[in-house]
C-alpha cells in the first residue's frame, strides 16, 4: 500500500489528544478506509493502552473489536507542529506528539509501511523533518526514502 496525499493533514492545532486521534480517524473515514465507528474504537484503544510511541509520534488505531469497521487498509498522517500531549490527564509526565499516524490495517497490508515509519521515526531528527514538512508530498518523499 502507499500513502495518499489526501490522507495527510498538515499544520493542525489541537487542544487534546482525543481530538488529534479523531482528526486522524476522520481522514481514514474520508479516505473510505473505515466506518465512522472505527474512530471511537481508536479512542478506546488509546485509553486502554497508549499509542504514544516515543520520539514525538503516536500511531492511534482501533481495537480488535474495531476491525469489523475497516473497509480497506489505510494510513493517515496528522502533523501538529505545536504539539499535543498524549499522556493521561492524571499523569504529570509530558508525552508530546507532533506527528500522528492513524492506522487501519487489514491482512497485514500495512506492515510494510509501518515498519518504514518505525525505522524512520526511530531517529528523532527524522521526526523533526516530518514535523516541519511543508507539503503532503514532502511527507511521502521523506518516508519513501526509508525503503532504500
Amino acid at each position: 500500500m502507499k500513502l495518499e496525499k489526501s490522507m495527510i493533514k498538515l499544520n493542525q492545532d489541537v487542544p487534546t489528544r482525543d481530538q488529534a486521534i479523531r482528526m486522524a480517524g476522520q481522514l481514514l473515514v474520508d479516505g473510505g478506509c473505515v466506518e465512522p465507528e472505527y474512530i471511537d474504537s481508536m479512542i478506546a484503544r488509546n485509553n486502554d493502552v497508549s499509542t504514544y510511541m516515543g520520539n514525538f509520534i503516536a500511531i492511534p488505531h482501533g481495537t480488535d473489536d474495531g476491525k469489523k469497521y475497516i473497509k480497506k487498509t489505510g494510513i493517515s498522517v496528522v502533523q501538529i507542529p505545536m504539539g499535543v500531549d498524549f499522556s493521561n490527564p492524571d499523569d504529570d509526565t509530558e508525552q508530546l506528539v507532533t506527528v500522528v499516524f492513524g492506522i487501519a490495517g487489514l491482512n497485514n497490508e500495512h506492515l510494510n509501511i509501518l515498519s518504514q515509519i518505525a525505522i524512520f521515526c526511530s531517529d528523532v531528527s527524522n521526526v523533526a523533518k516530518l514535523a516541519d514538512a511543508q507539503s503532503p508530498q514532502e511527507v511521502i518523499d521523506l518516508l519513501k526514502k526509508v525503503g532504500k
Binding site: 501538529i80 507542529p81 505545536m82 504539539g83 509530558e94 508530546l96 506527528v99 523533518k129 514538512a133
Partner: peptide, 9 residues
C-alpha cells in the same frame, strides 16, 4: 514549527 516544539520539549 514542529521541530522547535520537539527541541523545546
Amino acid at each position: 514549527l514542529g521541530s522547535a516544539t520537539m527541541a523545546t520539549s
